[in-house]
């Protein structure tokens, strides 16, 4: 009988866990939809800006602006985007591992690599591995992605770049592909990469620049960094919700499976107990005869 009770207790516990994972899945699905919409809505702006920068960069001659020319390889900054919360499969571990790999790989190339992390989980993961490289951690900003946040972080990065604190800035994040597929992506944030230029488009038009080209470039390039960061924040957030949704989905499924197995076990044990009881009664009756 003791066995029966234990199994029953376990079934109840798995059931309540399943309730939680189911609820989390539902919440993630709802958030995913919103995050996905936001990511899609931000796309035209980023694309248009990229196009214009590509135009500009090609004409500019890459030596003219510090944001466009690559400098020496002295100090680099790696910006890692993760989430503040766990329970989302490999969402936090994958880019964190990538960041670690990136640092190890480039340790010889760069004299110094610093790590800036957005999200608590990334810090937790890397604290004991490359803790000495972490210079700054932002927490609690991934939940509400707005342009202002991206702007502030971008401003900080840009000013560090301008002051020659860093020669290059890289960005590592989960690019959103679909609800179940996320790719860890390494992007170069600074100097601005202009090689994704649509060459034909750039050649076709000769613009008038007002007030002048340098001035326009001066204003647009920092904006480019902001937008790129904003977009990756949105994508990372959408990826997080997608990853959590699929992780919770498989957790719920595993729980169902477990409940099935336990129920079977429970029924078997119950049957065995009944049989045993019957046997006892029959043999007791026999002996009275």
């Amino acid at each position: 009988m003791a066995n029966l009770k234990i199994i029953k207790k376990r079934i109840a516990s798995v059931k309540s866990t399943q309730q939680i994972t189911k609820a989390m899945k539902m919440v993630a699905a709802a958030k995913l939809r919103r995050a996905q919409d936001a990511a899609v809505a931000a796309r035209p702006y980023a694309q248009k800006l990229q196009k214009v920068v590509a135009h500009l960069a090609q004409r500019e001659g890459s030596e003219e602006h510090p944001f466009l020319c690559s400098r020496g390889k002295e100090r680099a900054l790696v910006l890692l985007l993760t989430a503040d919360r766990g329970l989302c499969g490999g969402f936090n571990a994958n880019p964190s591992k990538e960041a670690e790999r990136f640092i190890r790989k480039n340790e010889e190339g760069y004299a110094n690599i610093d790590l800036m992390i957005i999200g608590r989980k990334g810090r937790d993961f890397l604290k004991n591995r490359v803790g000495d490289k972490i210079t700054k951690v932002y927490e609690d900003i991934t939940g509400v992605v707005n342009f202002k946040t991206a702007q502030l972080i971008a401003e900080e990065i840009v000013s560090m770049y301008e002051e020659d604190t860093y020669d290059a800035v890289y960005l590592i994040y989960n690019a959103f592909q679909s609800a179940v597929v996320q790719h860890v992506t390494v992007e170069q944030l600074l100097p601005v990469q202009a090689d994704e230029v649509d060459k034909k488009a750039a050649d076709s038009v000769d613009y008038i620049y007002e007030p002048n080209r340098g001035e326009v470039l001066e204003q647009i390039l920092p904006k480019m960094v902001e937008v790129q960061l904003f977009r990756s924040l949105l994508e990372s957030y959408a990826s997080e919700q997608g990853a959590r949704m699929s992780a919770m989905d498989s957790a719920s499924r595993n729980a169902s499976e477990m409940i099935g197995k336990l129920t079977l076990q429970y029924n078997r044990a119950r049957q065995a107990a009944i049989t045993k009881e019957l046997m006892e009664i029959i043999s007791g009756a026999e002996s009275v005869k």
Partner: peptide, 19 residues
């Protein structure tokens, strides 16, 4: 509202880029 003054644009304008 262009950076150095109001801009009026009609069809057939020259390519222009301004803040």
């Amino acid at each position: 509202p262009g950076l150095i003054g109001e801009l009026g644009i009609l069809p057939g304008h020259t390519p222009l880029l301004t803040t």
